Simulated scan of single mutants.
Amino acid sequence: MFTSFLAVISTLAASVVAVPNLAAREVLATWPADGFEQKCFHPGGCTAVFNIKAPAEYVQGAPAFSAVCHPLSAEQNGTPNCEAVTDPAAGSYVESVWEVPSADDLVKLSIFHIWNEGDARYNASGSVEFPASATSFEVPVTSVTAVL
Rank of each mutant, 00 (worst) to 15 (best):
A89W: 02
Y122V: 04
E138H: 08
G35V: 12
P43A: 13
D87V: 06
L106N: 07
I9T: 15
W31E: 02
S4E: 15
V16G: 11
Y93L: 03
C69R: 01
S110N: 09
S66T: 03
G45K: 11
C82G: 03
E75R: 13
A23I: 12
F65H: 02
C82A: 03
V85S: 10
A103P: 03
N21P: 07
P80M: 06
V147G: 04
Y58R: 01
P101E: 10
L106P: 02
V17S: 15
E83Y: 10
D87K: 01
A89D: 05
K108W: 07
A146R: 02
N21Y: 15
A13C: 09
H70A: 14
L148S: 09
G35F: 14
A62R: 00
W115A: 02
K39I: 09
N77G: 01
P88N: 03
V128P: 06
F50H: 03
S127K: 11
I111L: 15
C82Q: 04
E37D: 12
E26I: 12
E95A: 07
E75P: 04
P71D: 01
G126M: 07
A124C: 03
A7W: 10
T30D: 06
P88K: 01
D119Q: 11
S133W: 04
E83K: 11
N21L: 14
A134M: 08
A7M: 11
A7Q: 15
V144T: 10
A74R: 13
E117V: 05
L106S: 02
Y122M: 05
L12W: 15
L6I: 09
Y122R: 04
S143W: 06
P71L: 06
G44N: 00
I52C: 08
S66A: 09
S73I: 07
S66K: 07
S92V: 06
P63R: 03
S136E: 13
N21W: 04
H113K: 01
I114H: 02
H113T: 00
V107P: 05
A74C: 05
L12P: 06
D119G: 07
V94S: 07
A24G: 07
A33S: 11
I114G: 00
A67H: 06
S10W: 13
V59Q: 05
L109W: 11
D34R: 14
V147D: 14
A124Y: 10
Y122S: 05
L109D: 07
K53R: 12
E99A: 09
F65V: 01
F137S: 10
A54E: 05
K39P: 06
C82E: 00
S110F: 14
S136C: 11
W115G: 03
E37G: 12
V97W: 14
V16K: 14
F65I: 01
S133E: 14
G78R: 00
P55Y: 09
W115M: 03
L28G: 04
V144F: 06
V128M: 09
S73M: 07
E57D: 12
S4T: 13
S92W: 10
E99R: 13
E75Y: 15
A14Q: 15
V16F: 14
S66I: 01
N116E: 07
N81C: 01
P131L: 01
A33K: 13
G45M: 03
M1D: 11
P80K: 12
N77L: 02
G45V: 03
A120K: 09
V68D: 13
L148N: 06
V141R: 05
S127N: 12
Q60V: 05
S66R: 09
G118Q: 01
A84D: 02
V128S: 10
V8K: 14
A14L: 14
